[in-house]
Design a protein around this nucleic acid. Structure first.
Lengths: 121, 121
DNA sequence: TTTGTTTGTCAGGTTATCTGACATCAACAG
DNA sequence: CTGTTGATGTCAGATAACCTGACAAACAAA
């Protein structure tokens, strides 16, 4: 009996279910994959199988597309490692010091603060 | 965009996934359904679609089968409402009184105490 | 032995998904 | 204005997945 605890990352959903859960079309889902945005598993018969995490990612991708980003940009952004929850105590203190010195501007590159990519406190 | 919170009761899995998650055969899964033990939804094209709860139920059914119960017994047992968490305070007090009076035997019918069907405190 | 329950297996038919190609449409550049 | 690019729609042909129905096997119980 397989473990059922990894259900969010286990590929259990056919594309028809993903379509129903996301309101995306098969064309969109396959195109995002072709552009390198996700990598669903395949059955021995070559049918795509998706995890719940894939569904989340697809919704996020479509949201970012609607926000004006291109699939190429999203793909490149994926390659950047996201420190996020893996900040050491010292890094957190450094970020807080920077916060105080820069009056709340943690984003020296001037990117939109609403996208959620790259470094954020 | 559909809500993803009801994912445990939403029919999103094809029978091939259920087979992989349960180690049951398609024959077993369809036969349990034919005997009235579960009722997966169907796609417009008549393909069965299962929820994660269905997967849990199937594992439980197979376990009960291995324990010697017949599918007919399990089906009938399903029809019995299970009070369980819906006991009123008065019912709890009555059960405790009965407990004291009968020296721990809450099962006057003499069923096996390991099955988990019917009334239990 | 006979009967009932559960499971295996096969055949024939239908549905779901695949890939590849071409069309459309909007945004943008020249 | 015209041509290019990115995202999506749509279709055809092929294959995989699933369906039902039927018959057989294994086993336990009457």
């Amino acid at each position: 009996m397989p473990e059922l605890s990894d259900i969010r990352t286990r590929a259990v959903l056919p594309i028809s279910t993903v379509i129903a859960l996301t309101d995306l079309t098969a064309r969109q889902i396959r195109y995002y994959e072709a552009q390198g945005l996700l990598h669903p598993l395949r059955t021995p018969g070559n049918h795509r199988m998706y995890s719940l995490k894939d569904v989340d990612d697809l919704v996020e991708i479509h949201s970012q597309l609607a926000a004006g980003f291109s699939l190429a940009e999203l793909r490149d952004a994926q390659k950047q490692p996201k420190p996020k929850t893996k900040l050491s105590d010292e890094e957190v203190r450094a970020a807080l010091r920077s916060e105080l010195l820069n009056q709340g501007r943690l984003n020296p590159r001037g990117d939109s603060p609403t996208q959620g990519f790259g470094f954020r406190l």
